[in-house]
Amino acid sequence: MAEYQIRRCDRHLTGGIHPETHKQLSTAEPCVFVETPTRLLFPIHFSGGGPGEALVRVGDPVAKGTPIIRCQSGIVHVASRAGTVLEVTDHAMAHPSSERSACIVIEPDGLDRQDYLSPMNWPFDAETLRERAIEAGILGLGGAGFPSFKKWSNRTQTLIINAAECEPYLTADDTLIRIDTHSMIRGACLLSRTLDIQTIVIGIEDNKPEALEAIECALKESRSDCFFDIVLLDTKYPSGSARQLVWLTLGIEVPTGSRSVEAGVIVHNPGTLAALSRAIDGKPITDR
C-alpha cells in the first residue's frame, strides 16, 4: 500500500468563476471507442512537438504504432490504425485559424497489426525514460501538447497530477481516473523514482467523488513506496490552470514568464502519466 493523505486545500482563488459544468452529460454514459473511420489525417506541421517531417511514403503499409512523423523536438507520432498511406497532401486543420498543413492520409484496413516498442524493465535512468517518451510520442494530454520529456529536470522535487479538470463539459480526466487509475499511479511512481522526486501531489476538485474513490482504492492496492498528497480543491474555474494549481496545492507562486519546472515542480495531466505507463510497457500513444 502506498502512503497517502487527503487534505482540504486551505487557499482560495481570488476571482474565478463558477460556470455550469454540464459534466453529467458524459460521465453518466460508459466510455466506448469510436468506430474506425474510412480515412485518418495526420497533420505533419500542426502535430504536438513542433513542425515535422513524414517518415512514410504513399503506398507504404503501416501497422498500429508504426512511426509516421518525426517532429522538430524529436517527438515521434505513430499510426493509430493499421492500413495504407493513400497520399500526403495539404488539408485544412480543425483549428480556429483555418490554416492548412501537409497531412498524411491513411486508409485503415480493419486489421489489428501492431508495431509496438519493446517493454522496458526497471531499473532505468532518466535519459532512457526520456528516449522512450520521444519514441512513444508522449505529450501533455491536457491540451497544450508540450513534449513531456522537456519538463523532466533532475532538480525537480515535486510532481503534481493535475486532476482538477475545471472546464465545463470536459470529463476526459475524470473518466480516465475512474477506469484506468492504476496506469496513472504507476506512471507517476515510475517517473518519480527515475527523477528522485520525493512527493507526488494530486490536485482534484471536490466535484469528482468517484475519481477520488478510485484513487484511494488504487493507492491501497499499490506496492509503491511513493508518498501521495491528495489535495481537494474548491470547484472553481480556473483552478486547473498550472500556475493556479501550483499555488493552491503548494503555496508556490510561479512568476509570469516562468514555468513551474523552474520552481522544482512538474505538472502533468492524468492522461499523460497513464500514457507514460503504457509506453514503458511498449505501447506508443495511439488514442486518448
Rank of each mutant, 00 (worst) to 15 (best):
R132S: 03
E167W: 05
G140V: 03
I185A: 06
G110F: 01
W152Y: 11
D112Q: 10
S97M: 12
E210C: 08
P147L: 09
M184V: 15
P168V: 07
T158L: 06
P119Q: 01
R155T: 02
W122Q: 08
T171S: 12
E165G: 09
L159A: 04
A133T: 12
I177H: 03
I104H: 05
Y116P: 09
K151I: 12
E213V: 05
I160D: 08
Q114I: 11
E107L: 12
P119G: 02
I104W: 06
G110C: 02
P96T: 02
D180S: 12
E99L: 15
F149Y: 14
T181Y: 03
E99M: 14
E216G: 06
A92W: 02
S153G: 14
V105D: 00
A102R: 06
L212E: 07
A163H: 09
T158F: 10
E167S: 04
H95E: 00
D125Y: 12
I185R: 04
T199Y: 05
G145C: 13
G140M: 01
M184P: 05
L111N: 13
A94I: 02
R113M: 11
G140L: 04
P119C: 02
Q114D: 00
G143C: 13
N162W: 04
E99F: 15
S148P: 04
M93E: 01
S101Q: 08
W122Y: 13
H95M: 05
S192I: 12
A164W: 10
P108Y: 00
D174E: 03
A164G: 13
L191W: 04
N121M: 02
P147G: 05
I197M: 10
I160Q: 10
P168Y: 06
P123Q: 03
T128I: 15
K150I: 11
K151L: 15
Q114W: 00
G203F: 12
D112A: 13
I197Y: 09
A144W: 05
R186C: 07
I185C: 09
L141Q: 08
R113E: 10
P108W: 01
I200P: 11
L190R: 07
G110R: 00
E167G: 06
G143F: 13
S192L: 13
T194N: 01
A188R: 05
